[in-house]
Amino acid sequence: MRILVVGGSGLIGAHVVDVLRERGHRVTTVARTARPGVDHAIDLASGSDLRPLLAGHDGVVHATRTEEQRPVATPIHPRFRRDMVEPVERLFGAARAEGLTRGVVMGSYYTYFDRLHPQWRLAERHTYVRCRVEQAAAARAAGLPVAVVELPFVFGRAGDRLPNWSPPLERWARSRTPLLAPVGGSAAVSARSVAEIAVGALERASDDDLPVADENLTWHEMLTRIAAAVGRPRRVRRLPAAVVRTALASGGLLQALARKESGINHRYLADLMLADLFVEPTTGRALEPALRETFDGAR
């Protein structure tokens, strides 16, 4: 197959490119900015004509991301839709017009939990989740099979590309500040596992929602393992749930006073932080190599 990878220079996109090439497929890479290994520098949000870019390909992978925690001026849905949904509408519409037969969108495990726990009202409460749901629908509306890989915390590295959340966690783990973790936890996966699952979906022309996890970790377990990975193993203390709720509620109030909001609404963020955001079944693959790869560079 010949596959176009949008976001091919990012952490996940780079691993997808590697796995595609290992399996004998041809790859064209697209990113917002030019850098070594990027075949085309294009911002999908610009409304560029995508059909010439897609011509001659069999499938396309959309692996760009949006910062869901950064507060922006309200109303935020138009901005998130412009960044997350409209580029996918254009990309997959052009893919269908050029006769492509398969695609993959890198999504979020929040859409998995939105299906699993409708009483949580995630798409209603969180603009980021709403736009992830709309993004998947927009890709599939083009009429070709599109698999949505629903990502939890992703560990690993690709050159100098790391998870965007890892530098502050690394600094915290290396500092003298006490490590504190509330109840709850999250699924976690390596970038390599994501890539193998995505490429398998392309090869099958899958149209499935694919929640992924190598391991499910409590926050306590995750911080303990990160501290060990940076070379400063120590005890992680319990953070009372009431403190988490008060801190996040205060942050949400400050955002509201500034007429701003994050894609994950701070009014309801504590409910997510204190939940077990676990995905079953897991792949059974060991997460430790990717975890150490993420943080070993700090030593």
Score class of each variant (00 low, 15 high):
Ala205Cys: 13
Ser166Arg: 02
Ala34Ile: 03
Leu291Cys: 09
Ala256Pro: 00
Ala229Gly: 08
Val6Ile: 15
Val148Lys: 00
Val236Arg: 05
Glu288Cys: 08
Ala201Cys: 12
Trp172Phe: 14
Glu288Asp: 15
Ser250Gln: 09
Ala227Tyr: 07
Leu210Lys: 01
Leu223Gln: 05
Ser166Leu: 08
Leu287Ile: 14
Arg115Trp: 07
Pro78Met: 11
Ala229Met: 07
Leu239Ile: 09
Val244Trp: 09
Glu150Phe: 12
Gln255Asn: 12
Asp209Ile: 02
Asp208His: 11
Leu202Met: 10
Ala191Asp: 03
Ala227Gln: 03
Lys260Tyr: 00
Ala63Val: 06
Val30Met: 13
Ala137Asn: 04
Arg121Lys: 13
Gly231His: 11
Pro240Thr: 06
Pro75His: 10
Ser186Val: 14
Val17Asp: 00
Arg125Cys: 08
Pro167Ser: 04
Asp114Met: 01
Pro182Asn: 06
Val88Asn: 03
Tyr112Leu: 03
Pro289Ala: 07
Ile3Glu: 00
Gly24Pro: 08
Pro118Ile: 12
Thr101Glu: 12
Gly252Thr: 09
Val19Leu: 01
Arg259Asp: 10
Gly200Tyr: 05
Leu257Lys: 01
Thr224Ser: 15
Glu134Met: 14
Leu53Cys: 06
Gly156Asn: 06
Val230Gln: 07
Thr283Trp: 04
Pro52Lys: 10
Pro289His: 09
Leu202Phe: 06
Val279Trp: 01
Ala205His: 08
Val129Ile: 15
Thr64Trp: 02
Val17Arg: 12
Gly231Phe: 11
Arg232Gly: 02
Val6Cys: 13
Gln119Arg: 12
Thr218Tyr: 06
Leu179Thr: 10
Leu291Gln: 01
His220Tyr: 06
Trp120Leu: 14
Thr74Leu: 14
Tyr268Gln: 00
Glu98Met: 14
Thr294Ser: 13
Glu170Gly: 15
Pro167Gly: 05
Ala258Leu: 15
Ser48Cys: 09
Leu179Tyr: 09
Leu122Tyr: 09
Gly284Phe: 11
Val199Gly: 05
Val16Cys: 04
Asn265Gly: 00
Thr101Phe: 00
Leu100Phe: 06
Arg35Glu: 13
Pro211Leu: 10
Ala173Ile: 11
Gly24Gln: 06
Asp18Asn: 08
Arg90Ala: 13
Thr218Glu: 04
Arg70Gln: 13
Gly263Asn: 05
Glu261Ile: 01
Arg157Ile: 03
Ser206Phe: 08
Phe295Arg: 11
Arg32Ile: 07
Val236Ile: 13
Ala94Trp: 05
Leu248Tyr: 12
Phe295Asn: 08
Ala290Trp: 07
Met222Ser: 04
Arg26Leu: 12
Trp165Arg: 00
Thr282Glu: 01
Thr74Cys: 12
Leu239Ser: 03
Val61Phe: 00
Arg79Tyr: 10
Val244Cys: 04
Arg192Phe: 00
Ser206Ile: 10
Ala286Ile: 00
His117Ile: 01
Leu254Met: 13
Asp209Thr: 04
Ala201Ser: 11
Thr33Trp: 02
Leu179Trp: 09
Gly263Thr: 06
Ala141Asn: 08
Ala249Val: 01
Gly47His: 10
Trp120Ser: 04
Arg115Tyr: 01
Arg176Pro: 02
